[in-house]
């Protein structure tokens, strides 16, 4: 008895797992990009204590 049939299942599962892996990878990259954009565009003077910090720095 060969294992060819099982191997075929694994091949099909590999395609599905690869797809899910790529989606999860894409999601991680998207969250990283979002985080970068949010942090670099934030106005720190709007944060609690931000105004005090600005006055001190002046």
């Amino acid at each position: 008895m060969t294992i060819r049939a099982e191997h075929e299942i694994h091949t099909r599962r590999r395609g599905r797992n690869l797809g899910i892996g790529l989606m999860l990878g894409g999601f991680v990259i998207l969250v990283m990009a979002l985080t970068y954009v949010k942090i670099t565009n934030i106005d720190f003077s709007d944060l609690p204590g931000g105004a005090v910090q600005t006055e001190e720095s002046m």
Partner: peptide
């Protein structure tokens, strides 16, 4: 022929599509 096919008789496995 001793090749026992588990894919033909087993339940269908959903694909990503």
């Amino acid at each position: 022929m001793t090749d026992t096919s588990t894919t033909q008789s087993g339940p269908y496995e959903a694909q990503l599509g």
